[in-house]
């Protein structure tokens, strides 16, 4: 059998003198702040990164969303029809969709949906949690709620359940058992897309969403 590049590279690495592995570092221990403290910290961090945060409750979140939509007047809203969030939205629109953006369902593969996707004004997604200390949402897209929803439209509205806000990324990974169950893609999102590539001047929405609006549901 012919020797491959892989074999030669690994052979060179194996023939090198070995050093003893240092002990794994102690995981950072710290007492996680109470939920209200985590919400506050997350809010502070996200706002510092120019995300808009609105706090609401399980009873009122839909009203808060509708108020936001009426206020902002987007003409279209992309949503995921197969999710609980999507069902709630469809329901609300069926009752009284007057003055609300037209719903656009992400219900087919990107190959046939690409042109439409690039024309919607805003999108709404759920989140899989958040990290308070650095300030980031955890998105775990799947077949029902695809990856590009939170990326292509100029506005991303994210609905976050307050109890899924973790103190640290370490906590989120441990509690969610990430290592045993990594999906196709996960992404941490800490604000709208931004760049400072021209004279270090901060500008938003260079490729991804120009606005990130987070509804924290307590």
């Amino acid at each position: 059998m012919t020797e491959t590049a892989r074999d030669r590279i690994l052979a060179r690495l194996r023939s090198a003198p070995r050093e003893e592995a240092p002990r794994p570092p102690e995981p950072a221990i710290g007492t996680a702040p109470e939920l209200s403290g985590r919400i506050d910290q997350l809010t502070t961090r996200l706002e510092a990164m120019r995300a808009v945060v609105r706090r609401t409750t399980a009873a009122l979140w839909l009203e808060a969303l509708i108020a936001l939509l009426r206020e902002r007047g987007w003409s279209t809203l992309l949503y995921a029809p197969e999710t609980p969030l999507g069902a709630a939205i469809e329901n609300a629109w069926a009752q009284d969709g007057d003055g609300l953006p037209a719903l656009v369902a992400y219900a087919e593969p990107i190959e046939s949906f690409k042109e439409r996707l690039f024309t919607v004004e805003a999108a709404i997604t759920s989140t899989a949690g958040a990290v308070a200390d650095t300030g980031a949402l955890i998105l775990r897209p799947d077949g029902r709620e695809p990856r590009l929803m939170s990326l292509v439209p100029p506005v991303h509205v994210a609905v976050l359940q307050a109890q899924s806000i973790f103190a640290t990324l370490e906590d989120a990974m441990r509690a969610g058992g990430w290592a045993a169950d990594m999906p196709t893609n996960m992404v941490l999102v800490s604000g709208p897309s931004k760049t400072a590539d021209i004279e270090l001047t901060l500008a938003f929405g260079v490729h991804g969403p120009k606005e990130l609006i987070v509804l924290i549901v307590e």
């Binding site: 961090r45 593969p109 990107i110 650095t134 300030g135 590009l148 992404v187 999102v189 800490s190 897309s193």
Partner: peptide, 19 residues
């Protein structure tokens, strides 16, 4: 403290995924 996006990519599109 963190970049705007941290991508964790573990596989190509799986069955049933749309993008």
């Amino acid at each position: 403290f963190i970049t705007t996006y941290v991508n964790l990519i573990s596989s190509p599109r799986r069955a049933g995924e749309k993008d």
